[in-house]
């Protein structure tokens, strides 16, 4: 994996509610320093001189209390701990609010090539945003050959052998008003072991599709911005395969799963043969998945109803003599 540097942190392209609003105040030569840990450290104890289990490879967040403590130390002329802190070669310091570090601090930063960043956000808000970004940056990733589409709000990952009709299926789904995230190569990310997020490998090439006979087409131009999406949680895996006469396919549902990067998602296997409308099968599967999320399992519910019905039939049977049943008459007789 490519190293994630402080400059990359400043360059993250984020929308309003997770924008980090970082600017660099000093120590520009330290922008190339790699960030190796997904943790954020508050160096309060370190500034007080307690360096045991100090995480020197983490981003150092200087909140308001640390800021006043630094001011106090500098007023007293006690620079030892601050210098020691720089000695750890921390990736960068981030100051909260409109605090301006002292000349001495800036001088140290320039000398040690450590970037000083600032953000107008409050520290709790900033930590939350930064943590969620770092989680994504340091997440385990893999690329997979397949198509990711959003169908009725469910992220559906379509996989299958080359030439089985993944792209055509996706095209039909888009035609029906669903959205494409990526065709052909899907980058999967494990976000805090809870979500599997899929996106295109390269934003430059995403939302293009290769369809045999048509060549390469641009989905955004053809179908508009409503037909595409940047990323989406994968909630259903669909495997397309050519119909195999000898194989027994799932006839009831609810049994198969797929695991990507340690995260398990429900899976369906759809046998493909000419004339089979795969997009409508996927649409139905996505609707069914939404029902399941609401706690309604079609096949289980059906099975329970069958059981209930059999039970009540058996119960009724006890009240009838064998003659009554043969004659199909009421209780009065």
């Amino acid at each position: 994996m490519k190293e994630f540097t402080v400059l990359d942190l400043l360059d993250l392209d984020l929308k309003e509610h997770n924008h980090l609003q970082l600017t660099c105040m000093a120590g520009r030569s330290g922008l190339s320093r790699p960030i190796k840990s997904a943790k954020i450290a508050r160096p309060g104890l370190a500034l007080a001189g307690f360096f045991v289990s100090f995480s020197g490879d983490s981003i150092q967040l200087i909140g308001r209390s640390e800021q006043s403590y630094i001011d106090m130390l500098e007023e007293r002329g006690e620079y030892e701990n601050i210098e020691k802190l720089f000695g750890y070669n921390v990736p960068c310091f981030i100051f909260i609010g409109d605090y301006m570090p002292s000349e001495h601090f800036i001088e140290l930063a320039e000398k040690k090539a450590t970037a000083l960043l600032t953000t107008p956000l409050e520290s709790s808000d900033f930590s939350r945003r930064l943590y969620s970004q770092l989680d994504e940056v340091f997440a385990a990733t893999m690329t997979i050959h397949g198509v990711l589409v959003e169908v009725y709000g469910i992220g559906v990952l379509i996989t299958g052998d080359s030439g089985v009709g993944k792209s055509e299926t996706a095209l039909e789904l888009i035609e029906r008003g669903h959205r494409l995230i990526s065709d052909d190569t899907v980058k999967l990310k494990n976000i805090s072991d809870a979500f599997l997020i899929g996106s295109g490998e390269n934003p430059m090439l995403a939302h293009h599709m290769e369809i045999r006979g048509l060549g390469i087409i641009n989905l955004t131009n053809l179908f508009g911005v409503g037909a595409i999406r940047e990323k989406k949680q994968v909630e259903l895996s669909v495997f397309l395969e050519t119909w195999d006469q000898t194989k027994q396919y799932d006839r009831i549902g609810d049994t198969l799963t797929d695991t990507f990067l340690g995260i398990t998602v429900p899976k369906i296997v759809i046998p493909v043969r000419p004339g089979r409308n795969v997009p409508i099968l996927i649409e139905t599967a996505a609707r069914n998945e939404r029902l399941k999320k609401l706690g309604y399992y079609s096949s289980r519910e059906f099975d329970q109803n069958v059981l209930k019905w059999l039970e009540s039939e058996a119960a009724r049977r006890m009240y009838f003599s064998s003659d009554d049943i043969e004659g199909e008459t009421g209780i009065d007789q």
């Binding site: 050959h145 080359s162 065709d183 090439l205």
Partner: peptide, 17 residues
């Protein structure tokens, strides 16, 4: 690098950059 793609797909091969 970290990418693994199917050589039978044009978009995949282009994505390698």
């Amino acid at each position: 690098e970290s990418m693994r793609i199917n050589a039978k797909s044009i978009m995949g091969v282009i994505t390698l950059g």
